[in-house]
Simulated scan of single mutants.
Amino acid sequence: MRIGGRVVTPRGVIEDGYVEVDGETIAAVGEGGPADRVPDGHWLLPGFVDIHTHGGGGHTFTTGDADSARGAAAFHLAHGTTTLLASLVSSPFALMRRATAAFAPLVAEGVLAGLHYEGPYLSELRCGAQNPEHLRDASLDELTELIELGGGAVRMVTIAPERTGALPAIEFLVARGVVAAVGHTDATYDQTLAAVAAGASVGTHVFNGMRPPHHREPGPVFALLGAAGVVCELVADGIHLHPGTIAFAASVTGPDRAALITDAMAAAGMADGEYELGGQAVVVADGVARLARDGAIAGSTLTMDAALRQAVAAGVSLVDAARMAATTPARATGLGHRVGALVAGLRADVVHLDERLRVVRIMRAGRWT
């Protein structure tokens, strides 16, 4: 099968291009030739890779329920996300165990690409919508048990580097092939760079849930934006970050170190109302999710197609935005050899967008969904 149109690759746009699909794999990408062509003005992009999402479509990952996880994955697939990590929030260890055991079969099946523990080894001062009752110092015993239980399903853990035991935990994770991320932290600039030196390679929703930057104490934001080996997550929903901040951050990191994420919760795609996140009441009004107790932003109602549009509206080129929505997050989490770009040999994940960058149809593993 050949699909023709304007093809967005990591190197640029092929105006009269095609993507040739053989089974579940991209066989070739090139110029011209007979193809099932999309309408003029439409685009072919790689399937989006969301490495930080807590749910959507009324479903959540945070309770460890496998059926709910399937529902959340299906919801985000309809918005172009062909690969995602299931993100938990800070939780009791028993819940983390249950969720890991429940989600590992979904990773083996390919519904999920892995698990992301956002906590519980985070800062109380910068906990945001994380439940402060569940925050604690880093535990190698807990991490050892979870990684063994997951059997390869655990892919990323967010840690505040100033917590006791954080640096040994980062070294431990990296040695076992798990991505260590820095987030929900009140760390200084130097403490953040110490985490990077220990092996941390992702900044969790940079700017949000962090000590704000100051010209005499730049803190984690400047450290992460400036660290050559760190991919910085950005929530491009117009709420977490001003469009000017998106443009600034992307200009500092370049598209190879910026990853668009949704940080979505169950309310994504749903009506305003009352929801729950990590055992805390959340109120969604005008599409903005906030904790009922203090008004803190509680994740988002974002989808990856909307994040792409927000990034482009902020001044990021479509080619760079596609890299930020697919290629870079895939590489950051060790998935770049399988997904994340319209390149021969990778899984045939294609998002067909119209001239307004709205989803028309989605191909996952060579099949239109």
Rank of each mutant, 00 (worst) to 15 (best):
A271Q: 15
A74P: 08
H352F: 04
S123G: 09
A181Y: 02
R338A: 15
L291M: 07
D16V: 00
H240F: 02
L224E: 01
R98K: 15
D237I: 00
L342E: 13
R11H: 14
Q280T: 10
V206G: 02
L112Q: 00
H79A: 10
D354H: 05
A348R: 06
S123I: 05
A311C: 08
Y189E: 10
F48M: 13
C127A: 13
D141G: 00
R323W: 07
D320Y: 07
P161C: 14
H134I: 00
R97G: 00
G55S: 06
H214Y: 05
G33P: 12
G32S: 11
E24A: 15
L277V: 03
G114S: 03
C127P: 02
V38I: 14
A153C: 11
D141N: 00
L44H: 04
L125Y: 01
V89L: 07
F222T: 15
T253R: 15
D22P: 00
A268S: 14
V13C: 05
D263E: 07
P255F: 11
D320T: 02
L342K: 11
E355N: 05
L143D: 09
R323Y: 08
V221E: 01
A289Y: 06
A259H: 10
A138H: 02
E124N: 11
G295C: 04
A296L: 06
T158N: 08
M156A: 08
R176K: 04
L45D: 08
G57W: 07
A223F: 12
D320W: 08
S90I: 02
H116R: 04
A325I: 09
L95I: 01
S87E: 04
I3C: 02
G269L: 13
D272H: 09
N131D: 11
Q191E: 15
I14Q: 06
I159K: 09
V359E: 06
H79N: 09
D286N: 15
T25K: 13
L115A: 03
P46Y: 05
A298I: 07
T53E: 01
V202Y: 03
S123A: 13
T253H: 00
T369K: 11
R338I: 00
D186Y: 03
A138M: 06
A113S: 15
G340M: 13
A175G: 12
P92C: 01
R309K: 05
G55W: 04
R98T: 14
A195W: 12
M156Q: 15
F222W: 09
D320N: 14
A285Y: 00
D36T: 01
H59Q: 14
A138Q: 01
M210L: 08
V230P: 06
L135N: 02
S68F: 00
A187N: 03
G30I: 05
D286H: 14
T63Q: 14
H42D: 15
A86N: 06
A321G: 14
V89C: 07
T63K: 11
R290C: 04
R293D: 14
L85V: 04
H76S: 06
G150A: 11
A198T: 13
V8M: 06
G315P: 12
G71K: 09
G23A: 10
F61C: 08
G4R: 02
A247V: 05
D141R: 12
M265Y: 07
I170H: 05
G56N: 09
L45F: 14
V179P: 00
R364W: 05
P132T: 02
A258W: 11
V196C: 12
T53G: 01
